[in-house]
């Protein structure tokens, strides 16, 4: 595969695919925010969500689309715990 094709794949991955890794809101300036992915920062638009500094968000194509909260994370654990209780 040539370099250009590889570059397309990498770029495409960043843009198109659903990035399931949450980032943390480091700064907010109006509808724009700086999102921190463990040291790597990216700008994201936050007009589709209600966020404050410190929140964890899922970003798609430059837009935050979901704010994660502790309760939701615990719900995920519950699905697996219930599975283990019954399995």
């Amino acid at each position: 595969m040539n370099t250009e094709s590889k570059a397309f794949i990498v770029l495409g991955f960043l843009v198109h695919m659903c990035l399931a890794i949450p980032g943390q809101i480091a700064e907010i300036h109006g509808t724009k925010a700086v999102v921190d992915y463990g040291g790597i920062t990216r700008e994201a638009d936050v007009s589709l969500v209600d966020v404050k500094k410190g929140d964890y968000v899922i970003v798609h194509a430059g837009f935050a689309i979901h704010v994660l909260n502790k309760k939701d994370a615990e719900e995920t654990l519950k699905i697996f715990e219930e599975f283990f209780d019954h399995a």
Binding site: L48, H66, E75, I79
Partner: peptide
């Protein structure tokens, strides 16, 4: 819904509105 950490029953209402 297995993906409760990112999906609510009603979804992102703001996004649906736009």
């Amino acid at each position: 819904n297995e993906y409760v950490r990112c999906v609510n029953t009603e979804g992102n209402v703001k996004a649906q509105k736009v």
